[in-house]
Structure formats: C-alpha cells, structure tokens
Nucleic acid binder design. Sequence first.
DNA 1: TTTCTTCGTTAGATCGATCAAATTCACAAT
DNA 2: ATTGTGAATTTGATCGATCTAACGAAGAAA
Lengths: 346, 346
Amino acid sequence: MTRRTDAPGAPVTMATVARRAGVSTQTVSNAFNAPELLRSETLVRVRKAVAELNYRPHRAARSLRTRSSKLIGYAIRASDGGGNVMDRFLHALSQSAAEAGYRVLLFPSPAGPAELEEYEELLREHSVDAFALTHTVRGDKRQTWLHRRGIPFVAFGRTWGSKGVGDWVDVDGAAGTGQAVDHLVQLGHRRIAYLGWPAGSPVGDDRLRGWKEAMKRHGLPVRGLRAQALGEVEQGAAAAGGLLDAGASAVVTASDTLAMGCYLALRDRGLSAGRDVSVVGFDDAPAAQLLSPGLTTLRQPMEDVGQMCMQLLLKRITDPSAPAERVLLAPHLVVRDSTAPVPLTA
Amino acid sequence: MTRRTDAPGAPVTMATVARRAGVSTQTVSNAFNAPELLRSETLVRVRKAVAELNYRPHRAARSLRTRSSKLIGYAIRASDGGGNVMDRFLHALSQSAAEAGYRVLLFPSPAGPAELEEYEELLREHSVDAFALTHTVRGDKRQTWLHRRGIPFVAFGRTWGSKGVGDWVDVDGAAGTGQAVDHLVQLGHRRIAYLGWPAGSPVGDDRLRGWKEAMKRHGLPVRGLRAQALGEVEQGAAAAGGLLDAGASAVVTASDTLAMGCYLALRDRGLSAGRDVSVVGFDDAPAAQLLSPGLTTLRQPMEDVGQMCMQLLLKRITDPSAPAERVLLAPHLVVRDSTAPVPLTA
DNA sequence: TTTCTTCGTTAGATCGATCAAATTCACAAT
DNA sequence: ATTGTGAATTTGATCGATCTAACGAAGAAA
C-alpha cells in the first residue's frame, strides 16, 4: 500500500508536493516543464508548495525518463601546460552551461588511442549528452568519431586539417598580433619585429601571419625583423638579441615566455622594456602582470570562448543536422608598461 | 505487451543481455554488482553477452534505484590564480575518482554567501554524493554546513580555524622550506636567507616557520637573514637585494615569483643564480623550468593530494561517523641549476 | 436541452536498473 | 523416500520523474 501521509524526514518527491498543493503529480511536473499549461492560480499554488517543501526534481529520475543527463563531458589532460588558459576556459564553460541548465562532467583523459574508449564508455552509460573538446590537433580523430555517431560536440580549437567536421570556436591569433602591430604603429613605431616559434606549428604560423599582414597593411618593412626560438626563456633572449641589433624599436612575440626572453636581452644590454624598446607578449600568463615593467600582452577572451562554445553546443543539441558553425574571437590587448612611444633618441 | 524480440537499433538494456544469456535481469545485475553470487559458468555466459552487445548499465537508472549518483561535486572559481596547482589537483582528483568508480561534477561557484546555495541545490537534486573543497579559508562556512547535514566531503587545505571539522589533506609548507634548507646545508651553505610574505597569511607563516626551525636544527643563525615582500617580482628584487647585502649565500623563498625577484636582484649586481648565490622557489610554476638557470623549487605533490583526498572521501562515504582524518604531505624538492655548492670565493 | 470544443487536470504506463523475498535445484542428512 | 540446507536464480515491487491518453468542466453552437 502506498504511503498517504508525509512522515517527517521522508524524501520530498513530486507526490509530496502534489498532495500539499492538492493536485496530481503531473500538474507539478507541468509547473516545472510547461508552466503555460496551468491555470495561473494553480501554478501559484504549486509554486508555493514547492517553495515550502524546498523541493527539486530528482535528477536521476528525470534523466532516466527524458533520456537526457543534462551533462556535458569534458576530458581533462594530465598537465596541459596551457597555464591559466584552460582554467579560465573550464570556468567559463561551466558558467555558461549552468545558465542553460547543464553541468560539466569531468573525466580524466588517457592520452593516445585509448581516449576514445572513455568517450564511448560515457555514452554507453548515458552519462553525458554532449562533449566539449579542447587540445584539438591536426587530423583529430575525436571530431569525426563523434560526428559519425551523431553525438553533439563543440571544440575549442579549429580543425586544422582541411576536411574538418563540427562546430568550433577559436582565438584569432593573427588578429591578435595584428592588433599589437596597430597599437605599436600608433605609438610611432616603425621597426616592429616578430619573435615567434619555428614554422610548422599551426598556432605559431597563424600569429606570424597576423604580424606580417599588419606590417604590409601599414606599409612597413619586415625584412630582417623576424626571429624564432623554442619556448625557453634563454633561447628567446638570444633570438631577441639579434632583433635588437637589427634596430627593432618594438618586438611582438608569440608568447609571454618569449617576451620574457626579450626582457632579459634588453637587461643584458642595459636597456629596459617599455622605456627603450616596446615588447608585446601573448596569453597574459600570471607572470605577465608581475613582471616589471608590466607586460603588454594579448589576453585570450576565454570567457567569450566558453560562452560561445556553449551557445554552439546548445544549437547543435537542438538541431543536430544544422550546418556547422565556426567562430573566431579576437584576443584583447592588455596594455601595460612594456609598450610606450618611440623614444626620441631612437 | 512487452517486446520479446530485439529489434536492431533498439536500446540495449539489461533485459536484452538477459535474454541473450538465457538468464533473468537480476542475474545480469548480479554479474555487475555481486559476481561472487553467480556460478562461474553463468558468469562467463553473461559476460559474453555483455561483451557482444557492448552493454553498460544506464547511469540514471542505477542512480535512481541506489540513491547514489557516484558523482563528486567540485566548485570551480572564477580565476583562482593558483597557477597550475589547481589544474593538477583537479586532474589528480578526477583520476583517482575514476579509479574508484566516481566522476567529478564541475559547477561554477558564485563567490560569497550565495555559494552554499549551489551546494544545497546539488544535494536537493541528488546530483552528487559528496563534495571536494578547495580554497579553504579561516572559519570557512562550508565545512560546518556540510558536516551538520552529514554530507561527506574532503578539503584540500587545512581548516585553519581552531575548531575545524571534517577530513582534509594539505601540503606541509614548513616541511618544504625545511627540505630546502637541508639541501642547501648539504651543499655547504650556512648563510641561508628567507624571503617571504608579510606575516599574517597562514600559508606564508607556515613556510617561514619551516625555514626557521630547520636553521635552528642545523645550528645556523637567522638574524638579519629574513625579508619580506608582496607578490610582485620587482618588490621581491628590492627585498632580495637587502639579503644579498647581508651576505646571504642562498635564499629560500615563499614562491617562484619571489624567486624571480632574486634572479633580478642578482642580475642587477652582475651575479647569477646558482653560480654565485643559490635560490630556491616554491610551487614549481610553469615559468620555473623555463628560467635560466632552471629554478630549484618545491613542487606540491598534487597527484598525491588528489589521491589522498579521494581516499579520505571514500572512507567518509563508507563510514560517515568515523573520526576525522587529516593528512599533511611534504612537497618535493625539484633540483635544477639555481642551487649549487657554495662558491670557493665566498 | 443537447452536443461539440477547448482547456486544465488526472490516471496509468514507462524509463532501466536494484532491492527484498520467493523459488528452484542439487545434495546431504534423517 | 522425506526432509533439511544452502547456493543459484527468478519474481515482483520500487526508485521518482515524464509520457501518452483519457477525463471532467466550462462555454459555444446546434
């Protein structure tokens, strides 16, 4: 026999609410999922009961019936080294997800080919409705795999290969370095150098292109104003030295680390960033504002990236067959003291 | 009427598996949850059917019946600035959780008093079984709140207030700076300075204490070998200058940022870290190994922290009334080139 | 008055698993 | 042959919501 009384301490379910409001459970359900179906007076009554009992629908029950977990899977990597960028993305993503009634399910991603098995496992258990991908690489298998099965997903990071599938959001590196050049030109610089990574990395090539195109747009020469180094500070310093010798009055770099290399190269020559030579970094790492002088750098708009990812994902969930959307967002130039007008003596 | 045939494309449920294995659904359930109850021959038969159908139990259904979501809630903050420490914690936590059959549910934590409402919401919906807390502060309300309701939780970060409740895991800052001193003493240093933050921050005071106690243990003087600065690199450099003037041959610092200040102070004097004066940082920030020379620093054992958190949490879930456990883990000294034997000239 | 609509609400089945209790079976003890 | 015992398996109820379909009441049209 079903319990008719509401013992204190008994779990509060829809039936409890229904009893108190003097309606059926279906009406309570409608109050949550289709309030427009209720007469406004009934709605008020149900809402009152919900508030008094502090009731919320049981996720598992709802999810079992509706076949939707309202969870988005996100694979976290061992140590992505991405500095605080991934942190910010994750926060922005979960924030936007929450606003849309979703939450983020975190799972550790085994590197390599076993990775897809984790995705599959989550799907088999119906643990997630969709995925958010990051750390996309050339010819990433995940996109096509998910696409083939009709699982909604969105990627932070473009599909670099020619024939990519699915929606993505990415940061426009070229626009970023372009902005940096514009900023420096406005300060009177003309010999604006670029310090990047060796050719071949898509992200690096993109940032280089932005500098090159902006220089052309302003009618400025680029010959001899380009150097490259790997991610180490000291190597950056060596490469930056060459650019200074070539008479650069400003250096746009592919990363804050390389920018730190510039700082060192300047210090070794008794010069100072900002005062003598302007330097622009990329990423706005935590160290950037701690440096002295504070580093002018390109901050990736992770809040917007997360929000946009969620927006595309929701659209995809709603309409799985809509054409893919791709969004490029420009980084934001954070101006600190490492950029300044060209010194008169130069 | 119940469907007796298994149409292709129909969802694979326990009934499908049961039919194929020629057993009841309960037996399939037992194969997952209590395999020792089955005759080994039956178990094999069921496992075979499971494998052929690629079946996994539906999370929501299981969770509805067992009243356990197997999810651990974790509140992600806007930008905790914790560098890569939180990243590593989160990865370690989800890794250990996965090994125990749990996953991590990420939710954005609104700052301030509204925070607890998010926790409550998750509990009301039965979305999580337990919580992992970080960023604990003096007199944190979350611990007592969760404790009072009997919700299992674990904190990364000790309860600094006197009357804390609940299990926690933390990094032993004092042990870290102590190790740094030991290492330097072994290299022949005697005038080992400490560069920390202004008194008052519990973490900072802890690290200072470790240095002081280790110095006493080795019978070394501490007078005049202590300075403090806020988190900025340049201020660190100024403070470090004083220590160098006081004849320090090595500096233990409270953070990698302060260590970078030492680098600058040395460079300004034409000296170099490692060769002339040894420097030890704290945290192993991404920049630490990029610096030149590479920074010897104390790396927080986040993998162990995450694992231990999960271990305590599982115990707590199993036995909610067991006495609280607290674990302190020592950081690991990562030796790079910024520490070296005392130069002969000194 | 009767019948037809429409709107709001209710009743009963269902999602896919686990729990508690009942049942079957093999085998030993009486 | 009968009963007892324990292990292996099955049966039926249940978790808490949503779905489909049916129902009742109010007002409009006949």
